[in-house]
Amino acid sequence: MICVIVRAVPDLVEGLEIEERDVRPYRYIANELDEYAVEHAVSLKEKYNERVEVIGIASEDAYDEIDESLYMAIAKGVDKAYKVKIPKTTSYKIADALSDFLKKFDIILTGTLAVDEFYGVLGATIADKLDIPYVGGVRSIEIEGDSVIVKKELGGGAYLVLKVKKPALFGILSLEKPPRYVPISKLRSVMRSAEIEELKVKVEEDVLDVRFLEPPKPEVEFIDGDPEEVAEKLAEIIRGLIS
């Protein structure tokens, strides 16, 4: 059985509203890498006929908006979807809360990182709680008996091919081919017929304060004028830098 963890994250395209003690997104969407993880899980289902379930985790604000992504996952072929409401908290607490539920799965997939979690520890933490191996930066997965063969991206076009015993948790970084498109009519019919089970898990709130630290603005100077003038000024600046 495969489980995919999908997080609701702020939609950065729509922008954020920055307040004194909070950052309020206008809108939430599913974390892109988590959607890649769904894609991987669905291809595994097609290839090896594995059952795939997906669990969506979302904060109070994003709790409704995560639905769409979960329905889309079902439209792509996922067998069952759950969702969990979590307060403002850290990955460690989420891992704590979910480890019971995730025990029954032998492959767990999630995005290596998320736009609100660049340090990418959710996967690793859960793996640690479950005491199973974790591989991040994964590009492709294949099942071979009770092992899983994964390709891990090392950057610069290099790969690491790993053979991992099940159960294991993988952080997905990329896809081999672009995600499949779900026809909206199918999505809409899934929305009408499928149900998302709400998982009641108690998660401790431990983030109290979110602050926006505005980075210092770099000084930018536009040099106007005809090419000769510009060259003159530029030379002067460079001279200043060197000396």
């Binding site: 395209v13 969407i29 672009p178 498109y181 909206i184 199918k186």
Partner: peptide, 28 residues
């Protein structure tokens, strides 16, 4: 209907679906 859409068209459709414009600009 069969979900076989080339990436550039898929992107176009996803942009229209999510952001209601072909370029994926913010609706705001």
């Amino acid at each position: 209907e069969n979900g076989s859409v080339p990436p550039h068209i898929g992107e176009f459709l996803m942009n229209v679906y999510r952001r209601r414009n072909p370029w994926g600009h913010s609706r705001m």
